[in-house]
């Protein structure tokens, strides 16, 4: 999965699950402040991402450091790579 595929798939999750307009999904968008998710919405987001990418994100401590969409793209790329090499 390329970086571009990951960005497209994450954006699809935001569009489909949260109905966030695509134009608002920029790499620097703050997930809490700009996109309006709260801690409970993040649980829904993680479930949707796990389903979309077929990876385990929920128990990964690094998810706590995610602030922007770019952070999320990067994290998923790392997790995907780790799980492929394992």
């Amino acid at each position: 999965m390329t970086e571009s595929d990951i960005i497209t798939a994450v954006n699809e999750v935001f569009c489909e699950e949260f109905e966030v307009p695509l134009k608002e999904l920029t790499p620097e968008s703050q997930i809490f402040d700009d996109l309006g998710l709260d801690s409970l919405d993040v649980v829904d987001l993680i479930v949707a991402l796990q389903k979309k990418f077929g990876v385990q994100v929920r128990n990964d401590e690094r998810v706590r450091e995610v602030r922007t969409l770019q952070d999320l793209y990067d994290l998923l790329e790392v997790i995907k790579r780790e799980q492929t090499s394992a």
Partner: peptide
């Protein structure tokens, strides 16, 4: 509506 959509 999802909770997210409802709140917005």
């Amino acid at each position: 509506m999802s909770p997210f959509k409802l709140k917005n």
